[in-house]
Amino acid sequence: MTETYPVFSGAGAPNADFAVVTTDGVTLISGKVDPQGMWTGTSVEALAPGVYTGKVLQSSTTGPTETDFSFTVATR
């Protein structure tokens, strides 16, 4: 990706809270999963070119979950 403010999307438990957090502890986006189990949003942090890793965290009535992620922001 080459976007400074990338768009993230995923699936989760309907109405669960979620956050996309880098390994360094920076929250890129947070919100609530929609009733159909989908979420999307634009990073609130500008990202410089490089490799990013972290976790997508979810908190729902069935308990917390986390999923690892990795992506690269390329130079334009």
Rank of each mutant, 00 (worst) to 15 (best):
E45L: 02
E45G: 02
E45T: 15
E45Q: 15
E45R: 01
E45H: 02
A46L: 03
A46T: 03
L47D: 06
L47C: 03
L47H: 01
L47V: 08
L47G: 07
A48G: 01
A48E: 12
A48Q: 13
P49N: 01
P49A: 05
G50N: 00
G50P: 13
G50A: 09
G50I: 09
G50F: 06
V51R: 10
V51H: 04
V51K: 01
V51Q: 11
V51S: 05
V51A: 05
V51N: 12
V51I: 13
Y52C: 03
Y52E: 04
Y52A: 03
Y52N: 02
Y52P: 03
T53H: 00
T53G: 06
T53R: 07
T53D: 07
G54V: 02
G54S: 08
G54Y: 06
G54K: 00
G54W: 05
K55G: 00
K55D: 07
K55N: 09
V56C: 04
V56Q: 07
V56P: 02
L57A: 05
Q58G: 04
Q58W: 01
Q58I: 10
Q58E: 13
Q58F: 13
Q58C: 06
S59G: 11
S59W: 12
S59I: 15
S59R: 00
S60C: 04
S60T: 14
S60E: 06
S60L: 03
T61H: 06
T62P: 05
T62S: 14
T62V: 15
T62G: 11
T62L: 08
T62W: 02
T62Y: 15
G63L: 12
G63C: 02
G63H: 03
G63V: 11
P64I: 07
P64K: 06
P64W: 04
P64G: 11
T65G: 12
T65E: 12
T65Q: 10
T65P: 07
T65H: 08
T65W: 09
T65D: 10
E66S: 14
E66V: 04
E66Q: 14
E66D: 15
T67P: 05
T67A: 13
D68T: 08
D68V: 13
D68R: 06
F69M: 07
F69T: 08
S70F: 09
S70H: 00
S70Q: 13
S70T: 14
S70M: 09
F71T: 14
F71G: 06
T72H: 08
T72Q: 15
T72L: 08
T72D: 02
T72C: 08
V73P: 07
V73N: 06
V73Q: 02
V73F: 08
V73E: 07
A74V: 14
A74M: 15
T75Y: 15
T75H: 08
R76S: 10
R76C: 02
R76D: 03
R76P: 14
R76K: 13
R76N: 12
